[in-house]
């Protein structure tokens, strides 16, 4: 029972972590909560199902299931990436110097637009992940069942997170991102094209969220147009828990939140599952707003 809950928690936690990374990276650079980020994840989930349906239509799975899955992920992240940078271009960039309240309202507006756009385009009813491409089978350890889907989710998440860490630490663009996060004006003066860095940040965040969306649709087998809202808040909670703006923090926060939720749902009450996440968010913000790994920030007078 305990082991099972832990496994479930790790699975859902890695998804939260992937989404949380998008929040944290954008926050690190723009000090802005990308309110519409949850919708990008939702779009990823839809995109996965749309792509698979298309591939089934053209008969690709008959040739190779693995190839179909790879192409599905690819299609999903290309589109979520494109949606992410469009979002930045339309709703955020023109407001770069506007009051925070304006940016936040524009972000909320964008989130509503995306949600309802998907509802209108794809219908209000839940969409089902095509069963032809469900990965069956499971491992049994002690009396816990680990499905191959769960293994895939965890493995892919670890892979992407390591990739991101490498990218941020080792590549030129990654270093420019860190510099921009430190001090955007200074980075600009040093010849870094900060607008480009911001676009790249949105791109990466959206790609991760898109992949998370596809994985969750495989895991739950069902998606709907409002799934981005709760998942978004939870991932944001994860980012805050780890220390917003801090990349390892977002990963840690995601995993912790996933575990907490799975254990809370298992041992306390599953109806109030979503309340746990909010409670964690409120408590962290009040008692340790810098999160577990965040640095101290003090307002300058």
């Amino acid at each position: 029972m305990l082991l099972q809950q832990i496994i479930n928690g790790l699975t859902i936690g890695s998804v939260y972590a992937l989404i949380a990374l998008g929040y944290t990276m954008v926050y690190g650079i723009l000090q802005l909560i990308n309110f519409a980020h949850g919708e990008i994840y939702m779009i990823g989930a839809y995109m996965g199902i749309i792509a698979i349906t298309f591939f089934i239509y053209i008969g690709l799975p008959d040739i190779s299931i693995a190839l179909t899955l790879v192409l599905t992920f690819l299609a999903a992240i290309i589109f979520t990436g494109a949606y992410g940078i469009t979002l930045e271009r339309v709703a955020y960039r023109p407001l770069r110097n506007a009051p925070r309240l304006s940016i936040l309202i524009s972000a909320i507006g964008m989130s509503i637009v995306l949600q309802n756009y998907v509802m209108l385009a794809q219908g209000a009813r839940d969409k089902i992940f095509p069963h032809e491409l469900k990965i069956g089978g499971e491992l049994i350890i002690a009396d816990a069942h680990i499905t191959y889907t769960q293994v895939l989710i965890m493995a892919l998440s670890v892979l992407m997170m390591s990739g991101l860490t490498w990218f941020i630490k080792k590549t030129k663009v990654g270093m420019a991102m860190r510099a921009t996060a430190q001090d955007r004006r200074m980075a600009g003066l040093l010849g870094i094209n900060t607008d480009r860095i911001i676009v790249i940040t949105f791109l990466i965040g959206s790609i991760l969220a898109g992949a998370a969306g596809v994985m969750i649709s495989m895991y739950y087998g069902i998606v709907n147009f409002y799934m981005g809202y709760t998942a978004g808040i939870k991932a944001f909670t994860a980012a805050v828990l780890g220390g917003i703006g801090n990349i390892p923090g977002a990963m840690l926060g995601g995993i912790l939140l996933g575990l907490l939720e799975a254990l809370g749902a298992g041992y306390i009450s599953s109806e109030y599952k979503d309340v746990f996440a909010f409670a964690v968010l409120v408590l962290v913000l009040i008692f340790k707003p810098t999160g577990l790994l965040g640095e101290r920030i003090s307002d300058k007078v």
Binding site: I33, V240, V275, A277, L285
Partner: peptide
Amino acid sequence: PTLRLRGDYLAIVTLGFGEMIRITLNN
């Protein structure tokens, strides 16, 4: 408890608060 929070944190916490109330009413 939320007064010390910065503007956008406050937004999220109030959002969470609203949901908590609704979920509680529901359950």
